[in-house]
Amino acid sequence: MLVNRDSLASLPYFAAMLRPNTWSESQPGTRTITVHEDHPVAMELLLRGLHDTLPDLSASTTSTTLTNVTIKDIWYTVLLSDKYLLDRDPLSAWVSSWTQAELKEPRQSQRGDKLQLEQELLFPAYAFDCAKEFQIVTRKLVYHGKGHLVERNPVEVRQLHLPARVCQQLNASRGRLRTILHTSLFEAVASLVSIGDCPCKELAVFEYLRELKRIEVWPLEDVMKDASISDILERLDDFDQKNMRRLKDEEFDGSRFCACSRSWAVVVNQAKKRVAEYFDGLCLDCMDKTKNLGEGGDQDDDYWHYWKRYSRYDSKCRIMHGQPTWYFSFMGRREKGGLVAGLEDEK
């Protein structure tokens, strides 16, 4: 691959190699640099990003094109960018386009595990600062994942992984959805048990639970072991109040309002809607605000600033999201040596 000598020399690694010395690459007339250990496709992507020629890949006559770059190539590109101290921002837009193409159903359906691609995309989307794609991937994992949510590393380089807090927050988000679903489905039942005084309350509670059992939503704690949030929301579509028995008319005189006569289908639909719209995925901008200090910033001021109330929780973010995304995107920082600032130094 042809490269510009001056552009290459902007990287400290190659600058040391090209400046006048005894290395063969620095000798007059030398036009070839051989890098034996680096991944070839990742190196091409890295150099194209350096020379601003990544858009040319769509019409490339070489073996590397947008459609045949693999997820492993992208991971190795992260590795090489770190090795050569190259800013990844010039590659961000191209990786974003590649990720969008990769997430399309025809290409994704070729994989065995339905969420394998999303698990493998977590780290590259984070590393290349692809805000929209990171939001899409994290939201899908939270709603469609079963059990403990983790990332996947498709390459044999153990140093490449997300900060541990990211997967922790994904699992916390899923746990919160489970709590909201449980509350939304059963707060009416709790009210009926607490203050209900009609003769049909026992039957209403039993029939409601029986119908939820029929569609495999209850008991929720057991169901969640083998089902995703999305699975449960789909099952709620099968809820049919007509299957719930009621007391005979002569056993209920209708002289006063009965909480059991509510529309249980409405309760279920409202629960489904609330859960489905709750979480928008993690926000890289909110994450960045809580894990990095700006130049001249103060760790304690930055901490309290994050918890201020905002008119919009996605203010100055590249994606639109609500309060839950803002909340679960809090990454925090490594704690100070002492509990109180400066206290450790005074001892």
Rank of each mutant, 00 (worst) to 15 (best):
F206R: 12
Y126C: 01
R139H: 13
D301S: 12
G294Q: 08
D298R: 02
R5W: 04
F330E: 02
C167R: 00
K104T: 13
W264C: 05
D87R: 03
S26P: 05
A15G: 00
W75S: 05
K316C: 12
K132T: 11
D129F: 10
L45H: 00
D56A: 12
D280R: 14
D113I: 05
H36F: 07
S24N: 12
I136Q: 15
L66T: 13
S92E: 03
W75Y: 12
V78A: 15
S96A: 07
G296L: 00
R256K: 13
E37C: 11
L185D: 00
L233S: 04
D222I: 11
P40I: 10
G175H: 00
D6W: 01
L79D: 15
Q119D: 00
E251H: 13
P219A: 06
T138F: 04
I71K: 12
D240P: 01
E221M: 12
E207G: 08
L339E: 13
R152H: 12
L47Q: 05
R312K: 14
L141E: 07
K289C: 08
E216C: 06
V166Q: 08
P55R: 00
G297H: 06
L162S: 11
F252S: 14
L46K: 04
C258S: 13
K291N: 08
R274F: 00
A204T: 11
R158W: 08
Y327P: 02
S24P: 04
A93E: 13
G147I: 04
H182V: 04
G297V: 06
R111Y: 13
R111I: 10
T290I: 02
R334I: 08
V267G: 01
S109H: 04
F123A: 03
W304M: 11
L236H: 03
V268M: 02
D82H: 14
K289G: 05
V3Q: 07
G322C: 07
V41S: 08
L203V: 07
K336L: 15
L149P: 04
F206C: 07
S263T: 04
C260K: 02
